[in-house]
Write a protein that binds this DNA or RNA. Structure first.
Lengths: 201, 201
DNA sequence: TTTAACATACTGACTGGTCAGTATGTTAAA
DNA sequence: TTTAACATACTGACCAGTCAGTATGTTAAA
């Protein structure tokens, strides 16, 4: 067979992408190691050279997904001053990501679904939520300090803002039929309503 | 073995409940027919007396879940006049349901996850979304007709309100750690912000 | 009223296919 | 010539679905 030897880095990336693609199409349980290997013309043996088990591929995929997501969020909002702008940009970022890289973002369902059978996965997801919470809560505090808006209950507003984004991701992952451009155009408006600007007195 | 013969109606209900419980704990793929049968001390054969396949149990569970949910929503809001009140009540209903019947509502993830492998399931979910859309969109229209509020973009607001609820359900299904009572207390407030009352002129 | 004939509601052993993981063979590169 | 990076062939556990048989109602005719 044609051996196209690659560096471990390249192969791992390929395997992760192949896994993502397979999990999208069949779900975690139904996607086989042979499916994943086949995506780049590899064999089962080569998969097990890089990963000790199927579950470890999933874990690495989640790590990759979480890294990409959080890195993306931070780099989007880092150059902005106003808390409102940051929140708006964050919302827009997720929607644009969903448009541009549907497959990556709709991996969510695979991870969330596997939280049933796997405590490790569940803990990682809780970890992600904690990080989301930290980001959003600090933005809400910052907005209050800057006197941009007032939030009656930071915990709840934080939870609901995150829920809104997640709900959107999940719905689009299943339906692939949302008009995301319209949603994108309304983000600032919505944030303006949820966090109305303070009257200057 | 002690045969405890039951009517088809009772057995089917038992099987659905057993399946829900097993799917919660292990996910669809990992839960076995023997697991489901064991919940009520039945045997594999008796499951197949009522259902032709494992997937058909899932389908029936979804039907049950969707019926309960929509029935609940309609009965909650039917006695209210104001569109705002209806929207508030709807939000509160989902949160209370999540508190009172976590298992039923966190079944969502099982269904959503199975949309990957099964087109039938995916269509059913799209169907559910369509019904949600119909309810919320008509409430938004009604609110505008009553001059309770104005919505810049009905489609988008509808999508986001539904997303918020779904995101909440899913997060709580995974984490089981949200302070839902706090969220419940903020529903009216949040709706008030998203759909601010019109100034009477 | 009884019982034979039938219908319904199961049981549980068995099968056949699937697939994660393993053992071992092969080759390109250093 | 060694070994990292594969490929191939295999194993064994697991499980959905089958089916022959059993137990438990139901009913109609004698």
């Amino acid at each position: 067979m044609a051996r196209r030897r690659e560096s471990a880095e390249v192969r791992k990336k390929q395997i992760i992408e192949a896994a993502m693609h397979c999990f999208q199409n069949k779900g975690y349980a139904k996607a086989t190691i042979d499916d994943i290997a086949g995506e780049y013309g590899l064999s089962k043996g080569s998969i097990y050279w890089y990963y000790p088990s199927k579950k470890d591929i999933l874990k690495d995929l989640f790590r990759y997904w979480m890294d990409e997501t959080l890195k993306g969020v931070y780099s989007e909002i880092s150059d902005l001053k106003s808390a409102r702008d940051k929140i708006v940009r964050m919302g827009e970022f997720f929607i644009r990501s969903l448009i541009d890289d549907l497959e990556l973002y709709s991996s969510m369902l695979v991870f969330w679904g596997s939280s049933y059978e796997d405590d490790f996965m569940r803990e990682r997801i809780m970890d992600l939520y904690a990080q989301y919470d930290e980001i959003v809560k600090s933005l809400l505090s910052q907005g209050e300090e800057n006197r941009e808006f007032i939030v009656p209950n930071k915990e709840v507003y934080c939870t609901l803002l995150i829920a809104m984004i997640e709900g959107l991701v999940i719905r689009h992952a299943v339906s692939k039929a949302l008009d995301l451009d319209s949603v994108l155009g309304e983000v600032r408006n919505i944030v303006g309503r949820v966090l109305p600007p303070l009257e200057k007195g």
